[in-house]
Design a protein around this nucleic acid. Structure first.
Lengths: 186, 186
DNA sequence: AACCTCATGTAACACGTTACATGATTAT
DNA sequence: ATAATCATGTAACGTGTTACATGAGGTT
């Protein structure tokens, strides 16, 4: 029973938009799905080779040194649809920030606050980036596809806002009570 | 250069609270950090053996068939602090739900809506669970530790609320425009 | 010439899960 | 006694990253 192998899905998905080189596939996935998905070359090239062997993708202008791209075939498109329709299990989360904060009493003094500050900065940057992406998507022709893309970026925005609010509240909670073990500061 | 190996951190962290069996370590991590961290037995037991060999943990009542637990040593506590203080890289996200929605035009009809509905249910369940955990934590003696635990559960709550709102909005956006390819409904 | 980016690929390794095997306690 | 839960451990496997090697094409 194959467990995940979602790499195929991501690559086929990217190629369902347009033919691309392996290099461009990585960039395309990173650009749009940035914080929610990623692929490394060590995965992309072997996977493309496998998909080519199975007939799911083919090279345009094979042999040519330049201008050659991978393009999805009807077989590949069907495979993408099958794979997308399959049930999936959410990949088990491992959040190292949370791990640190939970055991934060063993962190060096000030480090928890620093981590939260970093998180605030990261969330603010993310929000700005999503704003740009949203503007791009709103240029797309209206339709279900555009709606789905807006939903994707909306996820990022909600996430970033939640992180921002949480980190600010948490920082405040820590600052109000800066001492360990109860109130020696006033 | 050791990459992550955050498993050591999680296990030492759990044992820094109380001595436990490997079985209890897994439960302890799952109970509290539930959605943000997890360990499998296949990781826990070899890691405990390694930590024991290096002197970071020891067995209480070694050899005894019952009542034996792993307990953190001063060496282990120092190691935990060192490891917690190290910089960490957020584990690269791979969100299969987002992957599916982004390529949602290739999903079977109604499936995107179904996935969002599932997400709403999941978030609601999570919120209820966090409410209970929060109530538990509020019983703890006040201090920095309790604040940090509340911060951890607060993260879960913010997350769940964000997911809930996003999924509801997204479902509404999809429902308003049920057709593919542009505005045939009004 | 030197350099950067685009581009493809492989090999070694780390990480973590799953499935299996085994047995001790405790409850019914 | 039977079953459920607690408890420990191993082996096989899949997946994914990192680092390395290589080269084309264009730019300064």
């Amino acid at each position: 029973m194959a467990r995940t192998a979602q790499t195929d899905v991501a690559i086929l998905g990217a190629l369902s938009i347009a033919p691309m080189t392996g290099y461009e596939v990585r960039a395309a996935i990173g650009d749009v799905l940035g914080d929610f998905w990623h692929e490394s070359f060590g995965q992309i090239y072997p996977t493309l080779a496998r998909l080519e062997a199975s007939g799911a993708v083919r090279r345009t202008a094979p042999g040519r040194t330049s201008g050659s791209r991978f393009e999805i075939t009807p077989v590949g498109l069907q495979q993408l649809r099958d794979r997308l329709a399959e049930p999936f299990s959410p990949s088990p989360a491992r959040n190292p920030l949370l791990l640190r904060l939970f055991f934060g009493d063993n962190l060096p003094p000030g480090r928890a606050e620093e981590l939260l500050g970093d998180e605030i900065a990261r969330a603010e940057r993310a929000l700005a980036r999503y704003g740009q992406i949203r503007a791009d998507i709103e240029q797309e022709p209206s339709g279900r596809d555009r709606t789905l893309h807006l939903i994707t970026v909306g996820f990022g925005e909600q996430h970033a806002r939640a992180h921002l609010q949480w980190a600010r509240e948490s920082l405040a909670a820590l600052t109000v009570r800066p001492t360990t073990g109860g109130g020696a500061h006033a």
